[in-house]
Computed example of a mutant assay.
Amino acid sequence: MATNVAMDKKPARQTVPNAIFSLDVVKEKERYDLWRESIACIFEVDGDRALRRTSDFKAHVDANMFGPIMLARTWTQQQDWKRSPSIMARDGMDHYMIQLFEHGQMQWEDGTGLRELPKGGLIVFDLAQAVKTRTNDFCNLSLIIPRTMMDGALKPQFDQHLRVLAKGEPMVKLLRDHMLSLKSVSDRMSVRQAIEVAPATVGLAAACLNAAVDRENPHQGAGIALAQLTVIRRFIEANLSEPALSVDWIARHAGASRTKLYKLFDAFGGVGTYIRDRRLRRALLALVDETAQYRPIYDIALASGYTSDAAFSRAFRAKYGIAPRDIRGNQARLVDIGLPTDDKVDRRYERWLHHLSV
């Protein structure tokens, strides 16, 4: 009889992955530094000295994974935010991020001067582009979607970066309400339901962005350049193991002129710098992969486009300040190079951001 009961028992339902970064268990004097280190997975932040010294500094991230997309609620205090070319080269994220501010405000500058997000509106970030913003104390909700999921759905001639979507538009209201509802039911959804809702969420986001286009975009030229940059970045990523990868090699195989390549990658420090940083990032992730802890370092070097251990080790040490052979046995150093370690603070959202498209 007991056997039948056991056979009839249903397996526990898998819930939507949820990571909650909280500073509540961190010593007051260490809170700001830990927050700055953690959020560096996507932004450099800078708070004034009074904020850094306060014993009451707060920062909280509540993130959910819905299959290949991420929805996160963040609340913290007044800060400056920057996504620079060096960060983009380091993390390689190629995502759109749509934000709504539930409380607080954000400001930034563009060619027209200082701008402020209208209350109740949405703003779109292209994480493959640089940005500087400033916020006061706020709580916002961020929907993060890999660019590949939006390919073919968006009108490609328009640059989406820092587009402001006014709250009065019907499609904007639909997307805003959907984001809020999705977060509110996330703790009751199954993994299967989350995976099934992801395409609908992406479709709604694309429809909202397309419907909001009602006049010629003044940044159309920038949008075309961004599309070219995106294509070349994907080409480079697919060929990182090719030792001959260089400006000339890319120009021959990707149909882009040297002049164009230099212009597209100027903000990244040049094509060579971008290739080196992406190769070393790939090697870093391979070295800390627990499932490949016995993989020879020489194999990792080859897969990252290096033809010798010596050249790879020199480049890796110059970039990260540690030898490749030491990275596996020195967990404390992982924090220094931007990868979280396992401790009392849940920092999984950092890895999730970098692996949405995997």
Score class of each variant (00 low, 15 high):
Gly47Val: 14
Thr76Leu: 11
Phe57Asp: 07
Asp94Glu: 14
Gly92Gln: 13
Asn64Met: 00
Leu127Tyr: 09
His103Leu: 12
Arg73Phe: 05
Leu143Asp: 02
Arg115Ser: 15
Leu117His: 08
Glu28Cys: 08
Leu51Thr: 12
Asp126Gly: 03
Phe57Arg: 08
Met106Ser: 02
Arg90Met: 14
Ile123Pro: 01
Ala130Trp: 01
Asn136Leu: 06
Ala72Leu: 13
His60Asp: 01
Leu100Asn: 03
Thr112His: 09
Glu37Pro: 00
Ser38Met: 11
Leu51Gln: 10
Val61Pro: 01
Gly111Glu: 03
Lys29Arg: 15
Ser55Trp: 09
Asp94Thr: 13
Gln99Met: 13
Gly67Ser: 07
Leu114Ala: 09
Trp35Asn: 09
Asp33Tyr: 07
Lys58Tyr: 12
Val26Leu: 05
Thr74Gln: 07
Met93Gly: 01
Val124Trp: 00
Leu51Ala: 11
Gly111Asn: 03
Phe57Leu: 09
Arg49Met: 11
Val26Tyr: 08
Tyr32Trp: 10
Asp24Pro: 00
Phe57Cys: 08
Ile98Gly: 06
Leu141Asp: 03
Pro85Gln: 13
Phe66Ala: 06
Met93Tyr: 01
Met65Ala: 14
Gln78Ala: 15
Met106Leu: 08
Thr76Asn: 11
Gln107Leu: 05
Pro68Glu: 04
Ile69Asn: 04
Asp91Cys: 06
Pro68Phe: 04
Glu116Tyr: 03
Leu34Gln: 04
His60Ala: 00
Val45Ala: 05
Leu71Lys: 08
Asp137Met: 05
Ser84Asn: 04
Glu109Pro: 00
Met70Asp: 04
Ala63Cys: 13
Leu23His: 06
Met88Ala: 13
Thr54Met: 12
Ser142Val: 01
Leu117Asp: 09
Met70Val: 07
Asn64Ala: 00
Glu102Ala: 01
Asp110Lys: 00
Ala130Arg: 10
Tyr96Asp: 02
Lys58Thr: 12
Ile87Gln: 15
Gly47Thr: 14
Lys27Arg: 14
Pro85Gly: 15
Gln79Leu: 14
Trp81Gln: 03
Trp75Ala: 09
Met65Pro: 04
Leu127Thr: 13
Gln107Gly: 01
Asp94Met: 12
Ser55Asp: 15
Gln79Lys: 12
Cys41Arg: 09
Ser55Ile: 11
Thr112Asn: 09
Lys82Ser: 13
Asp24Arg: 01
Glu28Gln: 15
Glu30Phe: 03
Glu37Asp: 06
Phe125Ala: 03
Asp94Leu: 14
Arg115Tyr: 07
Arg73Met: 13
Val131Asp: 02
Trp75Pro: 00
Ser38Cys: 14
Gly120Phe: 07
Thr74His: 08
Met65Gln: 14
Asn136Met: 05
Ser84Ile: 00
Gly47Tyr: 07
Leu143Gly: 05
Pro85Ala: 15
Leu114His: 06
Leu127Val: 03
Tyr32Pro: 06
Arg53Ser: 13
Ile144Glu: 08
Glu30His: 10
